[in-house]
Design a protein around this nucleic acid. Sequence first.
DNA 1: TATTGTTATACTCTATAACTATA
DNA 2: TATAGTTATAGAGTATAACAATA
Lengths: 167, 167
Amino acid sequence: MTDVLNPAQLRAYFGLMEVVSLLQYAVREQLHAEGGLSYVQFEILAKLAHTDQPLTMTDLADGVVYSRSGLTHQAGLLQKQGLITRSASPDDQRATVVHITEEGRARLDTVLPGHIQVVRELLFDSLDERDVRTLGDMMGNARDHMRSRPPRSAAPRNRHTGTAVEK
Amino acid sequence: MTDVLNPAQLRAYFGLMEVVSLLQYAVREQLHAEGGLSYVQFEILAKLAHTDQPLTMTDLADGVVYSRSGLTHQAGLLQKQGLITRSASPDDQRATVVHITEEGRARLDTVLPGHIQVVRELLFDSLDERDVRTLGDMMGNARDHMRSRPPRSAAPRNRHTGTAVEK
DNA sequence: TATTGTTATACTCTATAACTATA
DNA sequence: TATAGTTATAGAGTATAACAATA
């Protein structure tokens, strides 16, 4: 249990952060310029379109690193643009179900080609097929690992644990 | 020149974005809680300490995806905390050279063990040695590629090109 | 009593544009 | 004329805490 990372780890870590920063920057600009969407808004629409059925706010919050109030805020912006609708769930009166509208799908269609082009030009042009598979595997593992083992603080972001966390 | 990504690419792309989001979230929290630093502030200090010599604002802006005014702002915050100093360059009167102070180094030392622990627990615990090398290679390639080929817009972030970009 | 979601609020980050001064 | 950096400002994103309604 040393408290350093070896040089290969440092290189991987900083490389990862830098690459994703550059990618995020480009992707955000594209989404904003071509569709007036923030990245989170894009994620919400993409998730709804991909799942192809209404999701609750909590469903949406899963998978997006986001506070609930932040999600409410972004959903409000999407709704104001007519890209989603929100209505009370028939099953659970507390829950809100979110639907994507036709306009929402259309907006996604507007944005997607440019989005994909940016990602391909920036990221995939430098990776061969085997790299892509490997990267996908590694990120899949890492995600499962991260999701299953919340950080040291064990501070829940979205849920109550029952154990009070003093602060 | 299709306009889709194949499934492996989609998986890699979304996996990458999700993993780094989770990592950034955890890392930001750690830096803030244990050192009162934002990630950019950490990057600035780390860069100064690593280079081990004063850098100009422009030097610092390179490698950090940041507007110049944003960098000025963050540098101001660091200076207010006594972690860096800024002074006029002897070589070029326009330039500002940034030094890290002893306090700055100390702050970095305070933050680093926890930082490394977070990164190791979240990221490297799920990757073996070979993965780490591979990831480092891929990210190195991708970074070089991205840095050499600015996105479609060709809109310069930090420099003047001489060609006016209408907007 | 716990959970879903919203509101109100405040703070941070980031970018744009205008500006100063040096080259 | 171009570059380095700062300032003023404005907008977007995000979190916290308090709250209402339902389970």
